[in-house]
């Protein structure tokens, strides 16, 4: 194999720089040669070369499903990548408890909710409930944390009202339903409300969900964001390191 040039990286199939890509999509075009040609033209417009329609299936109602392989001639310079990553280190539960004992004179208060219309508590429960996720204990199991989980379908207004009573150090918001990007507007609205209430700067705002990332969270005005597969200890690591001593 020839040497990989990190300044000119192409997609890899089985030979360096072969640029192999796989795509699958449907078109609102009746099944037939026209549908296959439409798929090939679409791939060429995407900058792909030599598109091969390997599978086409008649979905009915004038739709066709296609599996296409093609070659991408494009390259990316991996020496110039800039990504937003969390600066804090990943600690285990014992290290988190030890750091918290050193840094804080009281238990940190964590308030969690699944906000807006969202009724999917799987994410927030996995992070907060004692049971946790994938063998990693939830935040309720941490001695250094005092957790309140408001559950599903909590309005932003109610969340902030609860915050006035509970005085949290951290607010965790879960958003699973992302249809028409409702999670973005809902999360941004929470930050606006928190700023109007004057509580934004005192509290660490963290969001999580399968379509969220740290980068998106920062764009929306949050302090951090966690995506799919996040373990409770990752969240706990972040907050004990990020919060100033109190």
């Amino acid at each position: 194999m020839s040497a990989i040039d990190p300044k000119h990286v192409r997609a890899y199939g089985d030979t360096l720089n072969d640029g192999q890509m796989m795509l699958s999509f449907s078109l609102p075009v009746p099944f037939g040669e026209e549908a296959k040609e439409a798929a090939r033209q679409l791939c060429r417009q995407m900058g792909l070369e030599a598109p091969q329609v390997y599978h086409a299936h008649d979905l009915g109602e004038g739709f066709t499903y296609l599996v296409v392989y093609a070659r991408s001639p494009h390259t990316v310079d991996t020496t110039q990548l800039r990504v937003t990553k969390m600066a804090t280190a990943q600690l285990g539960k014992d290290a988190i408890e030890a750091l918290a004992a050193q840094k804080f004179t009281r238990r940190l208060r964590v308030l969690g909710a699944c906000t807006g219309d969202d009724a999917h508590t799987v994410g927030i429960d996995a992070i907060l409930n004692v049971k946790g996720y994938n063998g990693d204990k939830g935040l309720e199991a941490y001695h250094c944390l005092s957790v309140k989980n408001l559950g599903a379908q909590v309005t932003n207004e109610r969340l902030l009202e609860e915050a006035r009573a509970f005085q949290p150090d951290v607010i965790l918001v879960s958003q699973i339903v992302t249809q028409k990007d409702c999670h973005r507007s809902n999360l941004a609205a929470l930050i606006d409300l928190a700023e109007a209430d004057g509580v934004r700067q005192d509290v660490l705002f963290i969001c999580g969900g399968p379509r969220l990332s740290h980068q998106v969270a920062l764009e929306l005005g949050f302090d951090a964001g966690f995506g799919a597969g996040t373990l409770p200890s990752q969240v706990a690591s972040f907050l004990v390191q990020q919060l100033p001593p109190r």
Binding site: S24, F25, S26, H57, L59, Y65, Q179
Partner: peptide, 12 residues
């Protein structure tokens, strides 16, 4: 399942 509500070909 873990990503979005089904696309037309997911169902097929």
């Amino acid at each position: 399942e873990a990503m979005h509500t089904p696309h037309i070909h997911d169902r097929y």
